[in-house]
Amino acid sequence: MKLFQNTQEFSYPWEQVTAANWRKYPNEVSTHVVAVDVLRRELDSTGTRLTSERLITCQQSVPKWLAMLVGSSNKSYVREVSVVDLNAKTLTLRSCNLTCAHLLKVYETVKYQPHALDASRTVFQQEAQITAYATIQTLCNKIEEWSVKRFGENASKGRKGFDSVLRMLSDNWEQRDKLVDELSDSIADRVAGTVGEIRATTDSLIKETEMKSTSLVSRYSKETQRAFNKT
């Protein structure tokens, strides 16, 4: 538990401060207070003691890690019970958060009373008791729980996504295999054909060459013989 204390003075008489207390919101500083409701209000039989119960609605952007713990709603509620005591000249406000009360409780007590020496001034005393019920273990468990859930969600999302990629790939894979087969077959065919062609061409070339050369030789030999014969 932690304690917070603060004392301030206002240069207005107590009566005025208490009247202003009911009109405190909205104001341009506390923009996080979006609504104030009176839930119960009773005047005692002497007409000097007024007790009010109020619900204060706050709206604040919560850090992501906190929103994760307390839910996505960024509205929070505070219950306040106040007593105006005309005889004692005190206005005492006691408040406690309703939202996330299982994790953290802030009990705040505020007291307004006239300054002891100067009735035109009002003393404001504030005290807050802050108790965190969430141990580090609880927080860690929460974070783990959330992470596992999120992981599961993402995993199933990821699975779906991967499935579709796999399906697409597998389709392409089969096609690819087919394509490769076709391609290699046709290449082989073509190569074989080419080789055959080349071979054929070469063969014929060689044959042609042989024939030509043979005929050349024979022609030359005839001529040579003739020349020899002549001589």
Partner: peptide
């Protein structure tokens, strides 16, 4: 307000707080 407290689900937390810090005791 009473109807809205129930409708918006604030009542249970409010009842809990009322038990803890009664109106009769000035909160």
């Amino acid at each position: 307000v009473e109807a809205a407290l129930v409708k918006q689900g604030i009542k249970p937390a409010l009842d809990e707080a009322r038990k803890e810090a009664p109106f009769e005791k000035g909160g």
